[in-house]
Design a protein around this nucleic acid. Structure first.
Lengths: 221, 221
DNA sequence: ACAGGGGTATGATCTGGATCATACTGTGGA
DNA sequence: TCCACAGTATGATCCAGATCATACCCCTGT
């Protein structure tokens, strides 16, 4: 079954699963369910009970909170190969955020029960999971201490981070960047336009390339 | 040795260690080193390598980041019985924040190596550690999505959280509260004075009591 | 007893960025 | 082909909160 095989290859590229044995990976793949979501569609909602761990197969998924006044605060942007919201799988709590497909997306859903079995059977996977977790905590912590910096610095920081994730070209709109750094579209547009005038970035509709990363880094001083 | 015995009793009250057997707790107590710090003194610094897990025995300890311009961003306030900065013990990275004694404080230092031994030997402790961790991640996440709310809401939220930690009276100055919510002393003073006029809180020098928690909660709407 | 400093208080002013308004442009769908 | 809409752009105005200045109060150490 080639589809199954492709899935196993995919799992091999996911950090948390990369040290599973072939048999374990087969076991995981057998329990996976692949689902498709349209752009803008919610995958799950903050506060709802969780019974699955999720992986991005294709497209882009955002973790976000709806704020009072209809505003959106995006806390995390996930690219293919990344897992998201393992936290409720570990503490059996509810989803800490809402997940939305930011583009048409294929995601993989692995039941928490199977996730636990795998982790019990594989110390390496438990270790990787813990590691993923630690990384996430450090990220959130780092982002938190930029929260009250001026907007241009927050945007510069976000772009540098996104570049690490997406490479040369960042496939996001100003609105999405605004939601990510906690500002308005207008301000995001003005700031990024300024960056462009200063030769730091180049942008086309829905895309954004960093010309000289160092030129952004110097904003972070 | 009564001192040793007191220490074991203390460990029993720390969430992470509460399920250790008497023998394991003895082992832990034997490896602990107690240290005293003056108010304002640093316990460790962000970015430095870590070889210990820390517990607050007496006093109050703040985790914080120094920002550009000499500002301080406090990310966490720890009361007696709480552990802090276990993260580097798990991922063997460096300290993610600086710890400062906010009052004269006694803290307990447990070598990472012993911490790992204990965790290896006690699944219950491993579970508790993970749990502490998850809680921390949820807290940080929750705080993050309030970051761009108006100051009065951030302060109200902080006071409610602090009340859970300290009970009726919160032993903190306006400056400390300002650093915690990411604002200036002046704004913190004005806001809290307003709360007082509105009958929501009562304050004396360095202390602050919530009169009607519900009156603050309604600010969070 | 007194001096000095940290904590609290309050006014005046300034500004980054939100808000409101309007318009242009590229893209996808009928 | 053209319409509708999402994304981008830009100006005008407004305001929460930072910044600057000054003062008072209470505690601690000498």
């Amino acid at each position: 079954m080639p589809r199954r095989h492709a899935l196993e290859l995919f799992l091999k590229q996911v950090q948390m699963f990369r040290h599973l044995s072939a048999a374990e990976r087969q076991r995981a793949a057998a329990a996976c369910r692949e689902r498709s979501f349209d752009r803008g569609e919610a995958i799950f909602h903050e506060g709802h009970p969780s019974d699955s761990v999720w992986l991005v197969r294709e497209g882009r998924v955002h973790l976000l909170h709806y704020l009072t006044g209809g505003r959106v605060q995006t806390t995390c942007v996930m690219a293919p190969g990344e897992s998201f919201c393992c936290l409720p799988a570990l503490d059996r709590g509810s989803y800490p955020a809402t997940a939305v497909a930011a583009t048409p997306a294929k995601v993989i859903q692995l039941p928490t029960s199977v996730f636990h079995e795998l982790m019990q059977g594989s110390p390496a996977m438990a270790q990787e999971t813990l590691c993923t977790f630690c990384t996430r905590l450090r990220q959130v912590e780092a982002k938190g201490c930029l929260a009250h910096d001026p907007v241009d610095r927050r945007i510069a920081q976000a772009l540098l981070t996104l570049q690490k994730k997406f490479g040369e070209t960042i496939p996001m709109t100003r609105q999405e960047i605004a939601d990510l750094v906690g500002t308005t579209v207008e301000t995001a547009i003005r700031t990024i336009s300024r960056f462009q005038k200063e030769g730091r970035v180049r942008s086309t509709r829905g895309k954004l390339a960093l010309l000289q990363p160092d030129a952004l880094k110097q904003l972070l001083s």
